[in-house]
Design a protein around this nucleic acid. Structure first.
Lengths: 185, 185
DNA sequence: GATCGCATGTAAGTGGTTACATGATTTA
DNA sequence: TAAATCATGTAACCACTTACATGCGATC
């Protein structure tokens, strides 16, 4: 009966912020949420159906000005209380599958130049994500700075920024060190 | 015919370091690798079978001094060349599902004290992982410091340490800031 | 003789993605 | 009229975990 997967709670959380359609949720997930959670339509729609079946959300078909009818889901009392229960529960550390670190680990089988390229690419993509996150942050501050949730969204993005920054810096330092060693030989 | 999932390449990489059994691989994954990759027996054994079928590894049954026979897999020439190909390919940034950040994002629905507890727990578990990783690092340096792969293993662990350190620091700062604001009111 | 560590494997289930199917409305 | 955007949904597939089944040898 209870929600089980974290994604069910994620959607429940979004519904707690106000009624939404599956489409809305997907759009939202492309912005702020994308940096630490993401979902496909093929997962969102079935989960919304489940939440409705379990009595955690109500379903209402609404006519749209453009395109087909929208199906708006709203969180119920029991849904909200389940969500708040989950929110207070300790987070288990998940196994962080990191393909970059995996390749780094096997570095002895790559040419030094190839490994440097991989590190550079990782640094670049990390910095790109960093900058994208900064932009989202500024945008959210301007458009939704008054929302009661804003300080927490900002906190989330701040954490992501710090972590990404450290990662990018590590790449730079490592590249510098590797080039120095190379010159010595 | 080619390996598809990253885990197939991960196992291929371990076999590139020398012949191993599925059991060995699981044990190894509990130590260094665990911090950025992990696999269950239920995945390892079928994948080893696949690698054998595809001609990327050979299979040899060997009598064990204790317990049942061991099945030792060794990488083949084609296996090694496939692995090296993969190693040089650019890494795609994966969607990083982070339950802690997700809960932080929904902080408006939690009591401030509850959120502080979650942040404290996350900091503690981060620091615990950090210390475990430091220990593994020292241990590997002492026991396998002469291995040609050592410098890359060390690099991998260094990256993890930097990132974890930044995360833990962010938690501390954030908790401090939150407590200051609370006193002002 | 119970239990622990060694060792391999399978079956069922979970959680998710991708690709596809459908169709309305707006814009170029 | 073609393409983009809005909008919902399903079927097939993928990667992986959990639980279970088996059984040897050493130790308590």
């Amino acid at each position: 009966m209870k929600p089980t997967s974290t994604t069910e709670f994620a959607l429940l959380g979004l519904l707690a912020m106000g009624p939404r359609t599956g489409y809305d949720i997907k759009q939202e997930a492309e912005n702020v949420l994308r940096h630490f959670w993401n979902e496909s339509y093929g997962n969102i729609y079935p989960i919304l159906g489940k939440l409705h079946q379990k009595g955690f959300a109500t379903r209402k078909e609404v006519k749209s000005d453009k395109g087909p009818n929208r199906i708006v889901y709203s969180i119920t009392k029991t849904g909200l209380s389940e969500f708040k229960d989950w929110l207070g529960k300790s987070v288990e550390r998940a196994s962080p599958k990191n393909e970059f670190l995996l390749k780094l680990f096997f570095g002895q089988f790559a040419k030094p130049a190839t490994l440097n390229r991989l590190i550079e690419e990782y640094r670049d993509s990390t910095r790109a994500t960093l900058m994208a996150l900064e932009q989202v942050r500024d945008h959210v501050a301007q458009t939704e700075g008054d929302d009661p949730g804003f300080q927490y969204w900002d906190l989330t993005m701040d954490c992501g920024l710090k972590c990404m920054g450290a990662l990018a810096d590590w790449c730079d330092e490592t590249l510098k060190r590797r080039k120095k060693i190379n010159k010595k030989r």
